[in-house]
Amino acid sequence: MLDWLRFILTTGFLISGLIILLTSVIGLYKFDYVLNRMHAAAMGDTLGILFCLIGLTISAPDIWVALKLLLIIAFLWFASPVSSHLIARLEVTINPHWQQLPPKENAGEEEAP
């Protein structure tokens, strides 16, 4: 019974994490603008990986493995938002028109150059 519960929880967490990662990958390729793409990538890096690692933590055979996985979660939650913040700050620094909507010329170029 407990094994089954563990299996179901693990599968649920892993699948939801993978769905979030897939969403973030699609967003990364669909969006045009840096900040939108950064948002999509950061979502996968934090929430998707959090769900995947929680699933692995539940299925861990050993308490020490589970603690190590929790440490990895803590590390990723430190590192990934900081890198997203740096990308966003770089974009805001170098692009004076970042508050306007991005120009549509990229979409037109691909269809009829």
Partner: peptide, 9 residues
């Protein structure tokens, strides 16, 4: 251009 002294980083 990069942020030089970023407090968060």
């Amino acid at each position: 251009y990069e942020p030089r002294n970023d407090r968060i980083l």
